[in-house]
């Protein structure tokens, strides 16, 4: 490496570690080659396997009644769970980001707790509340309410697993934005709901959308927690990921991968949404000159 004795500070970008042409080529090449194997190949494999016997077989696999029911149940679950966790996320972010109170950090840690807990633990924990031998089991049985091994159990487990998604997107952004605009709105005589609707939420709308998209993707794809509480009853309590497992164990690879393509598309759309929102944020940061 030929190093100039004392280059001018404003001169061409100076060499930093790993900037040598050979180091660059080796590191970039190695990382890209591994990325093709680790990150791209699984995506390609899903679609290749699903279309192994052509589009006709693919569509026929998706049209199977149990699979159609699994898609329906997954959509219903998402329709119930995502709005609830959007509401919770807004309430939690509003509490944590706009007010200062003792135990605020503890509350934030509690909100994020489900991220650190294996979905299997979540499923088992729910069983010990609502199962026949759980805390509320005798009460539920006496009143003939079925939660475990039924759709409400699937929804509850999904609520647990995805509770932090919206709040985690909103809290850092709302903390960075501070409370000045809300305080100005208060002095102008606006009430809490009005401030939330007209000031706070418009300021965080992209983060809110992205949090909701993440929450939705995870609800649709949740496997561990749901497989414990659902009881895997064909055509009754099978969501899409459970249906994938069932078809795979039945040696129906086309069927399993066909359902997998749908969930993969949801994942890819969520990733594209992330890229778009990041670009909008970057453009906004450039125009306002601040990190808003």
């Amino acid at each position: 490496m030929a190093r100039q004795p004392l280059p001018e500070p404003s001169a061409r970008p100076r060499q930093r570690v790993g900037d040598g042409p050979r180091a660059r080529a080796v590191i970039i090449g190695g990382v890209l080659a591994l990325a093709a194997l680790v990150l791209v190949a699984p995506l390609v494999a899903i679609f290749t396997e699903a279309f192994r016997h052509g589009a006709g077989a693919y569509l026929a696999a998706l049209a199977a009644p149990d699979t159609r029911y699994a898609v329906y149940l997954t959509l219903i679950t998402a329709l119930v769970v995502v709005p609830i966790n959007i509401g919770f996320g807004i309430a939690a972010a509003w509490t944590i980001a706009k007010f200062s109170f003792p135990g605020r950090n503890l509350l934030l840690a509690l909100v994020e707790l489900p991220f650190s807990i294996s979905p299997i633990i979540a499923g088992v924990a729910y069983l010990f509340v609502y199962g026949a031998q759980g805390l509320l089991g005798p009460f539920l049985e006496a009143h003939d309410i079925k939660i475990m091994f039924a759709v409400p159990g699937i929804m509850l487990a999904s609520l647990f697993v995805t509770a932090p998604f919206v709040a985690r997107e909103l809290v850092p952004l709302m903390l960075a934005q501070g409370t000045e605009e809300e305080e100005a709105a208060v002095t102008l005589g606006a009430g809490g709901w009005r401030i939330l609707r007209l000031v706070t939420l418009p300021n965080v709308r992209f983060a809110l959308l992205y949090g909701a998209a993440l929450c939705n993707a995870r609800v649709m794809g949740e496997f561990g927690a749901v497989s414990i509480v659902s009881g895997n009853i064909r055509g009754q309590t099978n969501t899409m990921p459970l249906q994938i497992e069932l078809l795979y164990q039945d040696n129906n690879a086309i069927g399993a991968f066909a359902v997998a393509t749908l969930l993969t598309l949801v994942a890819l759309v969520t990733l594209i949404a992330k890229v778009i929102i990041e670009r909008i944020d970057a453009a906004r940061a450039r125009t306002t000159g601040a990190g808003h």
């Binding site: 995506l43 993707a217 990921p241 594209i272």
Partner: peptide, 23 residues
């Protein structure tokens, strides 16, 4: 590449499981 890094987080675990198993 930056976007692809998030694929393992976005992909449902059961989908990742059958894809890796097929590969």
């Amino acid at each position: 590449l930056d976007a692809l890094v998030d694929v393992p987080f976005a992909l449902p675990t059961a989908v990742a499981g059958i894809a890796l198993s097929a590969l």
